[in-house]
Deep mutational scan, measured.
Amino acid sequence: DWLCNKCGVQNFKRREKCFKCGVPKS
């Protein structure tokens, strides 16, 4: 899993964008 750089929420590995704020995975 990965943490969003913008809002800090945890996302599933398969996600390419944050489910909460929509910022692309970096």
Rank of each mutant, 00 (worst) to 15 (best):
C4P: 00
V9G: 03
R14N: 09
P24Q: 12
R14V: 10
C18A: 01
R14T: 15
G8S: 13
F12W: 06
D1V: 03
C21A: 02
C7W: 01
C4G: 02
L3D: 15
N5H: 10
E16V: 07
K6F: 06
S26R: 10
K25S: 06
F12M: 13
E16K: 08
F12V: 04
V9W: 07
C7S: 02
G22W: 00
P24R: 09
C7E: 12
V9Q: 07
S26G: 11
W2Y: 13
C7P: 12
K13L: 10
W2V: 03
N5Y: 15
C21V: 01
E16H: 09
C7D: 10
W2H: 03
F19H: 06
P24A: 09
K13E: 14
K17P: 08
C21D: 04
N5G: 10
V9A: 09
N11F: 01
G22I: 01
F19L: 06
F19E: 04
V9Y: 13
F19R: 07
V23N: 01
F19V: 07
W2T: 08
K20I: 04
K13C: 08
R14L: 14
C7I: 00
N11Q: 04
N5S: 11
K13F: 06
V9E: 14
E16C: 05
C18P: 01
W2E: 02
P24H: 05
R15I: 15
W2S: 06
C21R: 00
N11D: 04
C18G: 01
V23Y: 08
N11I: 00
S26Q: 12
K13G: 11
K13W: 10
K25I: 08
R15S: 10
C4I: 07
N5P: 13
K17Q: 13
R15K: 11
V9L: 08
V23F: 10
K13I: 10
R14P: 14
K25T: 02
C4F: 07
L3Q: 14
R15T: 15
L3T: 13
F12P: 12
C21Y: 00
V23R: 06
K20E: 02
G8A: 13
L3C: 08
W2P: 09
C21S: 02
K20G: 03
C7F: 00
C7M: 08
P24G: 09
V23T: 11
S26F: 10
V23C: 14
V23S: 11
R14Y: 10
P24V: 03
K13N: 11
P24N: 15
G22D: 04
L3A: 11
K25L: 07
W2G: 03
D1K: 09
C4T: 00
K6G: 07
R15E: 15
V23K: 11
F19A: 07
R14C: 07
F12Y: 06
K20D: 09
Q10L: 12
P24L: 05
F12Q: 14
K20C: 04
V23Q: 01
K25R: 10
Q10C: 10
K6L: 10
C4D: 04
W2A: 08
V23H: 10
D1A: 01
C21I: 01
P24E: 11
W2N: 05
S26H: 11
L3K: 14
N5M: 06
W2Q: 11
K6W: 02
K13P: 07
C18R: 00
K20N: 00
V23P: 03
K17A: 13
K20L: 01
C21T: 01
G22N: 08
L3Y: 15
L3F: 14
C7K: 02
K13H: 02
L3S: 14
G22Q: 05
F19I: 03
N11V: 02
V9T: 15
P24K: 02
G8H: 15
R15Q: 10
R14A: 13
F12D: 15
K6E: 08
K6T: 09
S26C: 13
C18V: 00
C18D: 04
K20P: 01
R15D: 13
V9D: 02
N5E: 12
L3P: 09
S26N: 11
R14I: 14
V9N: 11
F19T: 04
Q10R: 07
N11E: 05
K20F: 03
F19D: 02
C21H: 04
C4M: 04
R14H: 15
K6P: 14
P24T: 08
S26P: 13
G8I: 09
R14M: 14
L3M: 12
S26A: 06
N11W: 00
K25E: 08
C7L: 12
K25F: 12
G22E: 12
K13M: 05
F12K: 09
N5A: 11
S26K: 09
W2R: 01
C21E: 03
G22F: 01
G8F: 10
V9K: 14
K17G: 03
C18W: 00
D1R: 02
Q10M: 15
Q10H: 11
E16I: 05
C18N: 09
K25Q: 05
E16N: 06
R14W: 12
K17D: 07
C4N: 04
K6A: 14
F12R: 13
C7H: 05
G8D: 10
S26L: 12
K17Y: 06
K13Y: 11
R15L: 13
C21G: 00
V23G: 09
K17I: 09
K25C: 02
E16R: 03
N11A: 01
V23W: 12
V23I: 08
G8E: 04
Q10E: 12
K13R: 07
G22M: 02
S26Y: 09
F19S: 07
V9M: 04
D1Y: 03
G8K: 12
E16T: 06
